[in-house]
Design a binder for these strands. Structure first.
Lengths: 186, 186
DNA sequence: TTAAAAGTAGACAGATCGGTCTACCCCTGA
DNA sequence: TCAGGGGTAGACCGATCTGTCTACTTTTAA
């Protein structure tokens, strides 16, 4: 693994736990065991590092989630796989993601205002909405798929929030049963 | 209004928009037009100010939400009032709350780790869950009320997340219809 | 009236921040 | 062999942060 990747992963871990503005460059460097000049040869600034961290997490999360949902044949099975995956995530049974600390993008988004970072965080959520709608449109009409996708991602976000700030480790199961009950069985 | 309250309100506005760690004491003071010594005569530290801000927002939000839900007779009407209120909030029709910027407690919670602030934010969410369950237990059995309350607050959190990061101004209407569909009509 | 309480303005201290820079080291490939 | 790319260690700079302090003014209440 390159020094660049080590920096990104260490920065992600610290940002995810403590927030972006609470973590200093020197803390990332000492944790990663990397010199300051190396960081600034790969990234122009702390903000550029943050953007790379966001892209890294976005890729990781989408690969994981869409991987789960792709290995299903029907739309309801894809939705079930999504919430089964969330349940695994909330209860730290997913190695590829870090120990559950809520949604990274929600956290980071909350620390910025009218900023490029906000757009990047929104884009992550939009990508998941789009994919979900695409999967649902294989089985349902376009209008139905759009409506159902909004409902499903709303349940997904609610489950993440309840699991994290609500301390509810079963939120994914609850949301999953609610989601499946929404899907018409033709 | 006392200087103390002016400080709390100004700090809330800035923390809510930009995050806690992005906002300095001097910014709060110049915005409020208050001297630094006055701040430190009312609060021992920035963190003490933050705790007062959290308590202020907690009181404001609960008074607003429970006020809406108390002026209803049936449990389904209380749930409907909750999501009608959320819709007003998301679309900036509530003067007592500030212009919608997501959930303050979710934002603040994300900036701290294993910290007293996390407990305060959790307590706010727990209070809303408890009240919701209490209202539902007037009509439904204890088990049913507990289950329904978890579902309702999950939908509420999902709606807030979708309205903010998902840019979906209709999230409250969607979540409200989903919530009402869950309530058995005996 | 007058003394205490509460407020203002802002200099200041000490720490920490992001970012630059020097000096040195180690490995690799032409 | 040796030049150069990539790395380390960390001093250093200017800015900014929280919090303290002095000196002065305004408000308040006995």
């Amino acid at each position: 693994m390159t020094k660049r990747d080590e920096l990104i992963q260490t920065a992600f871990k610290l940002f995810y736990m403590n927030g972006v503005h609470s973590v200093g460059i020197n803390q990332i460097l000492s944790e990663a065991g990397i010199a300051k000049k190396t960081l600034y040869s790969h990234f122009a600034s702390k903000e550029a590092l943050l953007e790379a961290v966001i892209a890294y997490r976005d890729e990781r999360f989408q690969t994981w989630l869409f991987g789960l949902m792709n290995s299903t044949s029907s739309a309801p099975a894809a939705i079930a796989a999504m919430f089964q995956g969330l349940d695994d995530w909330f209860n730290d049974r997913v190695e590829t993601l870090m120990p559950f600390q809520g949604c990274f993008f929600v956290k980071v988004n909350g620390e910025f205002f009218q900023h490029r970072v906000n757009e990047l965080c929104h884009a992550h959520k939009q990508a998941i909405l789009d994919y979900t709608q695409m999967r649902l449109s294989e089985t349902y009409s376009a209008e139905q798929a759009a409506q159902l996708a909004n409902q499903v991602v709303l349940l997904k976000e609610g489950a993440i929030a309840q699991a994290y700030l609500g301390h509810d480790h079963h939120a994914a199961k609850l949301a999953g049963s609610m989601a499946l009950a929404l899907l018409p069985t033709p």
